[in-house]
């Protein structure tokens, strides 16, 4: 039986996926990001803390629920990543 190879996402790709998920809805809850970015709760928390430290996202609390939104810096990062991803794809470079 052939073993199915699972492609591992790079850290930068995971960050881009999280940002992309937030951009799609504007204000995103953790549960939404979890499914959209396909991450475990612990890993997502680590990444969200990293993104907050880097100033790529903002966090606010509404009715005891944490809501995340993207900053201008985050949008710029996502735009740059998508450009590079497109370039890399053309050359067959995995990002």
């Amino acid at each position: 039986m052939k073993a199915r190879r699972v492609e591992r996402r790079s850290q930068i790709k995971i960050i881009a996926d999280i940002l992309d998920a937030i951009v799609k809805v504007g204000d995103a809850r953790v549960t939404y990001i979890l499914t959209a970015a396909n991450l475990s709760y612990d890993r997502l928390q680590r990444y969200l803390n990293l993104l907050l430290r880097q100033g790529l996202i903002l966090e606010r609390v509404e009715n005891d629920v944490k809501i995340y939104s993207i900053t201008k810096k985050g949008l710029d990062f996502l735009r740059e990543f998508k450009r590079i991803e497109e370039f890399a794809k053309a050359f067959g470079i995995p990002v």
Binding site: S10, I12, E80, F81, R83, I84, F87, A88, F91, I93, P94, V95
Partner: peptide, 17 residues
């Protein structure tokens, strides 16, 4: 553009391009 890819992703393969 390849240099920007290198800077962003730190993937050494971009260095060749």
């Amino acid at each position: 553009l390849a240099y920007r890819g290198l800077k962003l992703t730190k993937a050494k393969i971009f260095l060749f391009h």
